Lab assay of single mutants.
Amino acid sequence: DETGKFLVLALYDYQEKSPREVTMKKGDILTLLNSTNKDWWKVEVNGRQGFVPAAYVKFL
Protein backbone atom coordinates (compact mmCIF):
# COMPACT_ATOMS: atom_id res chain seq x y z
CA ASP A 1 0.00 0.00 0.00
CA GLU A 2 1.58 3.26 -1.15
CA THR A 3 -0.78 5.51 0.85
CA GLY A 4 0.85 8.82 1.69
CA LYS A 5 3.69 8.35 -0.77
CA PHE A 6 4.07 10.26 -4.00
CA LEU A 7 5.00 8.66 -7.28
CA VAL A 8 7.23 10.33 -9.83
CA LEU A 9 7.97 9.50 -13.46
CA ALA A 10 11.52 9.27 -14.83
CA LEU A 11 11.79 11.67 -17.77
CA TYR A 12 15.29 10.51 -18.76
CA ASP A 13 17.67 7.62 -18.21
CA TYR A 14 20.06 8.23 -15.31
CA GLN A 15 23.11 6.12 -14.47
CA GLU A 16 24.19 6.28 -10.83
CA LYS A 17 27.57 7.91 -10.30
CA SER A 18 27.98 7.12 -6.59
CA PRO A 19 26.65 4.55 -4.09
CA ARG A 20 24.16 7.16 -2.79
CA GLU A 21 22.42 7.39 -6.18
CA VAL A 22 20.19 4.97 -8.08
CA THR A 23 19.94 4.14 -11.77
CA MET A 24 16.61 4.73 -13.50
CA LYS A 25 15.31 4.38 -17.02
CA LYS A 26 13.03 6.80 -18.86
CA GLY A 27 9.45 5.79 -18.10
CA ASP A 28 10.22 4.21 -14.70
CA ILE A 29 7.73 4.93 -11.92
CA LEU A 30 9.58 5.78 -8.71
CA THR A 31 8.39 6.20 -5.13
CA LEU A 32 9.40 9.64 -3.87
CA LEU A 33 10.86 9.47 -0.36
CA ASN A 34 12.24 12.98 0.11
CA SER A 35 12.14 16.14 -2.02
CA THR A 36 13.45 18.74 0.46
CA ASN A 37 16.61 19.28 -1.61
CA LYS A 38 15.72 21.18 -4.78
CA ASP A 39 18.42 19.48 -6.87
CA TRP A 40 18.45 15.85 -5.67
CA TRP A 41 15.40 13.83 -4.66
CA LYS A 42 15.52 10.58 -2.71
CA VAL A 43 13.51 7.85 -4.40
CA GLU A 44 12.99 4.12 -4.31
CA VAL A 45 13.23 2.12 -7.52
CA ASN A 46 13.50 -1.63 -8.00
CA GLY A 47 13.81 -2.12 -4.24
CA ARG A 48 16.75 0.30 -3.92
CA GLN A 49 16.78 3.73 -2.30
CA GLY A 50 18.96 6.60 -3.43
CA PHE A 51 19.14 9.99 -5.04
CA VAL A 52 18.32 11.12 -8.58
CA PRO A 53 18.47 14.60 -10.14
CA ALA A 54 15.17 16.38 -9.41
CA ALA A 55 15.12 17.77 -12.97
CA TYR A 56 14.99 14.20 -14.32
CA VAL A 57 11.64 13.32 -12.73
CA LYS A 58 8.14 14.78 -12.51
CA PHE A 59 5.12 14.16 -10.30
CA LEU A 60 2.45 11.84 -11.65
Rank of each mutant, 00 (worst) to 15 (best):
D1M: 13
D1F: 10
D1Q: 14
D1K: 08
D1L: 13
D1T: 13
D1E: 13
E2H: 14
E2Y: 05
E2T: 14
E2M: 13
E2C: 13
T3D: 13
T3P: 13
T3E: 13
T3M: 12
G4A: 13
G4V: 15
G4L: 12
G4K: 14
G4D: 09
G4N: 13
G4H: 15
G4S: 13
K5M: 12
K5V: 11
K5L: 12
K5R: 14
K5F: 12
K5N: 11
K5Y: 12
K5T: 12
F6H: 14
F6T: 14
F6C: 15
F6S: 11
F6G: 11
F6Y: 13
F6V: 15
F6R: 13
F6A: 12
F6E: 09
F6I: 14
F6Q: 15
L7V: 09
L7H: 10
L7M: 12
L7K: 11
L7E: 07
V8G: 09
V8M: 10
V8C: 11
V8P: 01
V8F: 07
L9F: 11
L9W: 07
L9K: 08
L9Q: 11
L9D: 01
L9G: 03
L9E: 11
A10F: 02
A10Y: 02
A10Q: 01
A10W: 03
A10P: 01
A10M: 02
L11K: 08
L11M: 11
L11F: 04
L11H: 04
L11V: 09
L11E: 05
Y12P: 00
Y12Q: 13
Y12W: 12
Y12G: 06
D13L: 02
D13K: 02
D13W: 03
D13G: 05
D13I: 02
D13M: 03
Y14I: 01
Y14P: 01
Y14L: 01
Y14T: 01
Y14S: 01
Q15I: 14
Q15L: 13
Q15Y: 15
Q15W: 11
Q15H: 14
Q15G: 07
Q15C: 10
Q15E: 15
E16C: 10
E16N: 07
E16M: 13
E16R: 13
E16Y: 04
K17L: 10
K17Y: 04
K17P: 04
K17E: 08
K17T: 13
K17D: 06
K17V: 09
S18V: 05
S18C: 08
S18F: 06
S18L: 08
S18K: 07
S18M: 07
S18Y: 07
S18A: 09
P19T: 10
P19E: 12
P19A: 12
P19V: 09
P19G: 09
R20T: 12
R20D: 14
R20W: 15
R20M: 13
R20N: 14
E21D: 06
E21M: 05
E21G: 11
E21A: 05
E21I: 03
E21N: 05
E21F: 06
E21K: 04
E21S: 06
E21R: 04
E21L: 05
E21H: 07
V22W: 04
V22I: 15
V22T: 06
V22D: 00
V22R: 02
V22E: 00
V22L: 15
T23F: 04
T23G: 09
T23K: 04
T23A: 07
T23P: 07
T23C: 05
M24F: 10
M24V: 10
M24K: 00
M24A: 02
M24Q: 01
K25L: 08
K25V: 10
K25F: 11
K25G: 04
K25H: 10
K25C: 08
K25P: 00
K25Y: 11
K25T: 09
K26Y: 04
K26W: 03
K26A: 13
K26P: 03
K26I: 06
K26N: 04
K26G: 05
G27Q: 02
G27P: 00
G27E: 02
G27H: 05
G27V: 01
G27I: 01
G27L: 03
G27Y: 05
G27F: 04
G27T: 02
D28V: 04
D28Q: 13
D28T: 07
D28G: 03
D28L: 04
D28Y: 04
D28K: 03
I29F: 06
I29N: 03
I29S: 04
I29V: 12
I29D: 01
L30I: 09
L30V: 08
L30W: 01
L30G: 08
L30H: 02
L30A: 09
L30T: 01
L30C: 10
T31E: 09
T31F: 13
L32S: 02
L33S: 02
L33K: 05
L33Y: 04
L33F: 04
N34A: 09
N34Y: 07
N34I: 07
N34R: 07
N34M: 07
N34K: 07
N34W: 07
N34L: 08
S35V: 09
S35P: 07
S35M: 14
S35L: 08
S35K: 12
S35E: 06
S35T: 10
S35N: 14
T36H: 12
T36A: 12
T36M: 11
T36Y: 11
T36V: 10
T36I: 09
T36R: 11
T36E: 14
N37S: 09
N37R: 09
N37F: 08
N37I: 06
N37A: 09
N37E: 11
N37L: 09
N37C: 09
K38G: 10
K38F: 07
D39V: 14
D39M: 12
D39W: 15
D39I: 15
D39H: 15
W40Y: 07
W40H: 03
W40A: 02
W40L: 03
W40G: 01
W40C: 06
W40N: 02
W41D: 00
W41M: 05
W41N: 01
W41S: 03
W41A: 04
K42E: 14
K42W: 15
K42V: 13
K42D: 04
K42Y: 15
K42S: 07
K42H: 11
V43W: 00
V43D: 00
V43F: 01
V43Q: 00
V43E: 00
V43R: 00
V43T: 01
E44T: 07
E44G: 06
E44F: 06
E44I: 08
V45M: 13
V45H: 15
N46R: 12
N46G: 12
N46K: 10
N46P: 05
N46C: 08
N46Y: 08
N46H: 11
G47A: 06
G47W: 03
G47L: 04
G47Y: 05
G47S: 06
G47K: 06
G47D: 07
R48H: 08
R48P: 01
R48C: 05
R48Y: 06
R48D: 04
Q49F: 08
Q49L: 08
Q49D: 06
Q49E: 09
Q49I: 15
Q49V: 14
Q49H: 08
Q49M: 10
Q49C: 09
Q49W: 07
Q49R: 12
G50K: 02
G50D: 00
G50T: 02
G50R: 01
G50Y: 02
G50H: 01
F51Y: 15
F51M: 08
F51G: 01
F51A: 02
F51T: 03
F51Q: 03
F51E: 04
V52M: 02
V52Y: 01
V52T: 01
V52D: 00
V52E: 00
V52H: 00
P53Y: 02
P53H: 02
P53G: 01
P53T: 02
P53N: 02
P53F: 03
P53E: 01
A54P: 04
A54N: 03
A54E: 03
A54L: 02
A55G: 12
A55N: 13
A55S: 14
A55H: 12
A55Y: 09
A55V: 10
A55W: 07
A55R: 14
A55Q: 11
A55F: 09
Y56L: 11
Y56G: 07
Y56S: 10
Y56K: 07
Y56A: 11
Y56V: 05
V57I: 10
V57D: 00
V57K: 00
V57H: 00
V57S: 00
V57Y: 01
V57C: 10
K58W: 09
K58M: 15
K58N: 07
K58C: 14
K58L: 12
K58Q: 14
K58A: 14
K58P: 01
K58G: 13
F59I: 15
F59W: 10
F59S: 09
F59K: 11
F59L: 15
L60N: 05
L60R: 04
